[in-house]
């Protein structure tokens, strides 16, 4: 499988990365090179093979239903590029 520039643009849009025409062109070549490389997986017979869900065979631990965190709105917003009254501010979202 290979991708064209339009696909690369669509994928970049999904990933929210702006690309210039030159970049889209270059990335199309690079992506095709990588996709060409991974194509060899098609040789592998995976019939009846379970996909890996975890490399470690342990049961997932769980937390108790106790409030142990939060109550630090200032800390949470301390690194925010734009904030006000402990809210994060973003360009207006139109619903």
């Amino acid at each position: 499988m290979s991708v064209d520039t339009a696909t690369v643009r669509r994928v970049a849009r999904l990933a929210r990365i702006k690309v210039t025409d030159d970049e889209a062109e270059r990335m199309t070549n690079e992506l095709n090179s990588i996709l060409g490389f991974v194509e060899q997986l098609d040789e592998v017979d995976v019939a009846g093979v379970e996909p890996m869900t975890s490399v470690v065979s342990v049961k997932m631990r769980r937390r108790q239903d106790v409030v142990t965190d939060g109550e630090d709105a200032e800390g949470v917003t301390a690194n925010a590029p734009v904030s006000e009254d402990n809210f994060f501010l973003v360009p207006k979202v139109v619903e």
Binding site: V82, E84, F87, F88, L89, V90, P91, K92, V93, E95
Partner: peptide, 13 residues
């Protein structure tokens, strides 16, 4: 997201 606090910004809680 709260949209009515500011003319050009949304507030995120």
């Amino acid at each position: 997201s709260i949209h009515d606090q500011h003319p050009t910004m949304s507030f995120v809680d």
